[in-house]
């Protein structure tokens, strides 16, 4: 499973949103979800396995935080397509205007 597949789950995306606000303990994360605590733990494990979150121990607590590296890669990869289509749609805009000018000229 790659990073995109890990992101496909809505609970996991919500966990990442929470962590984008800052480091959180497992219990605090779980309190935001109706899912059982083990269920949330499983999601956290999957996120960790994909390098999307980091974990550190503080006494008895396990604190989770966001690791943006895989998301940066994902975004850079999408950027290529974004640039391609942005340029093409700019050209479409120009073409639409060109056609309208040609029609206006014809109609005098």
């Amino acid at each position: 499973m790659n990073a995109l597949a890990a992101l496909a789950d809505p609970t996991r995306r919500r966990i990442l949103e929470l962590l984008s606000e800052g480091e959180r303990g497992a219990g605090e994360i779980a309190s935001h979800f109706p899912t059982s605590r083990p269920g949330v733990s499983r999601h956290l494990r999957i996120l960790r396995e994909h390098g999307l979150v980091r974990v550190r121990e503080q006494g008895q607590r396990r604190l989770y935080s966001l690791d943006p590296a895989p998301l940066e890669e994902l975004d850079a990869w999408l950027e290529r397509y974004r640039v391609f289509w942005t340029n093409r749609l700019d050209a479409l805009d120009t073409e639409v205007r060109r056609r309208r000018r040609a029609r206006d000229d014809k109609e005098g």
Binding site: N2, L7, A8, P68, L71, E72, A76, W77, E79
Partner: peptide, 22 residues
């Protein structure tokens, strides 16, 4: 397909809100 080119590197500026559905 993500596997096509995961090699490209750039900075992540946009927020997680941009990631929607699958």
């Amino acid at each position: 397909d993500e596997r096509v080119c995961m090699a490209y590197a750039r900075t992540w500026e946009r927020r997680l809100d941009d990631l929607e559905a699958s």
